[in-house]
Simulated scan of single mutants.
Amino acid sequence: MKINWQGVYPAITTKFDQNDNLDLDAFKKNLEVQLASGIHGVILGGTLGEASTLTEEEKDQLIKTTIEVTKGDIPVVINIAEQSTRGAIAAAKRAESNGANGLMLLPPMRYKADDRETVEYFKAVAASTSLPIMIYNNPVDYKIEVTIDMFEELAPIANIQAIKESTRDVTNVTRLKSKFGDRYAVLCGVDTLAVETLVNGADGWVGGLVCAFPAETVAIYELMKAGRIEEAVAINRWFMPLCELDLHPKLVQYIKLAEVAAGIGTEHVRAPRLPLIGKEREEVLAIIDAGIKSRPVLPDYKALAV
């Protein structure tokens, strides 16, 4: 499947049951609501997907289940976050053999590689697979920035096609588009900056709170692309307190709690993460409850999609 890297791509959460096994029924239910809401692709095993806690067999199962549910209608992308080049290449090959349509690729984990090492890592993984790749640029959380110069060095590699832009600097979208034009698709990776990033020319949005509020997320995207910015901004103002949950170290617990409130998820997380308790839980629930009670009436945003 060719990926055009446009639209809303949920970084979907991994559902577990009370015995710490994959809850595929809950996973399918959420994914079906995402599809009905008009998402354009799905990303598995990212930060929100609790990637570091998943076994290889569980990742295989998530890919196969997602392909079963999506039926080829949207791209299925799997995240690669490995400590070694060898491990990343093995993960890429395994994803391709399992039927994934694309990869989201982080720089090396744990070791803070320099620019040359990071570029060589990306080149080696790209050379090992025919799958299209989106580079995840998140120096805030993962301590390695993929710079404009590094992307210039990667530009000749055809299957490195997109950038998940999570530097927190919305002007970086302008820099990327000014330098590379349409060579790379650029997708917003920070929920609180989506509208601003789309105004600056981003092609898509890798979302977090979309896991609980898919219709509102897709509506904002479609309205922005249709030039109906005031309507998008109005929904985004409602959405902002919820989107800020995506910026916290406990974003997995926060967003899973929002999924439960929206009726499309479970709260179970995999240790060392633990469910929220006490005052923190009450404060997060208050934000979610206020959002649920004041959900906006959406226009027919699906009619805007080209």
Rank of each mutant, 00 (worst) to 15 (best):
V284W: 08
R94K: 14
K15N: 14
A271H: 12
A194G: 00
G208C: 07
G263I: 07
V269H: 03
A113R: 00
K28P: 01
D246Y: 12
F213A: 14
E50S: 05
L304G: 04
I67H: 03
W205Q: 01
L276N: 09
E280H: 11
V170Y: 05
R94G: 03
T70P: 00
I229L: 13
K256I: 04
T147Y: 05
A290H: 10
E216D: 07
V8P: 02
C243R: 11
N4H: 12
S130G: 13
Y121E: 02
G49Q: 04
N172Y: 13
I135V: 14
V218S: 00
A162R: 02
L193F: 12
V199G: 01
C188T: 09
K293M: 11
A219F: 09
P299T: 14
D289G: 08
Q34Y: 07
N236G: 10
E32G: 02
V125H: 01
E117F: 02
P272N: 07
V218E: 00
N19Q: 14
K177D: 11
A90K: 11
L304M: 13
E282R: 13
T53C: 09
V140E: 14
V125W: 01
C211T: 11
R295L: 14
I3A: 09
A100L: 10
S37R: 09
H268W: 14
Q6Y: 09
K2V: 10
A258F: 01
I288A: 07
I74W: 07
G49S: 08
Q61S: 13
D191F: 03
A11H: 02
E230G: 06
A124G: 06
R175W: 12
R281L: 15
R116G: 11
A155V: 06
N79P: 00
F239Q: 10
N138V: 11
I288N: 07
T147I: 02
E50F: 03
G181Y: 05
K179S: 13
L154T: 07
T65H: 07
L245E: 02
I63P: 01
Q6R: 13
K15R: 13
A261T: 03
A258D: 01
V252C: 06
N236M: 10
S97Q: 14
A113S: 15
I12H: 03
S166V: 08
D191Q: 04
L31K: 02
A124K: 12
L274D: 03
L198P: 00
L105I: 05
G227C: 10
A258T: 00
C243T: 11
Y301F: 11
L276G: 07
N137Y: 06
A95Q: 02
S52Y: 12
L276I: 09
G291Y: 09
V210T: 13
A271D: 13
V76Y: 09
K112E: 15
L274C: 11
A234N: 11
M150I: 04
D246M: 14
R281K: 15
L209K: 11
E82F: 00
G201S: 08
K29T: 12
P10S: 14
T167L: 04
V297Q: 15
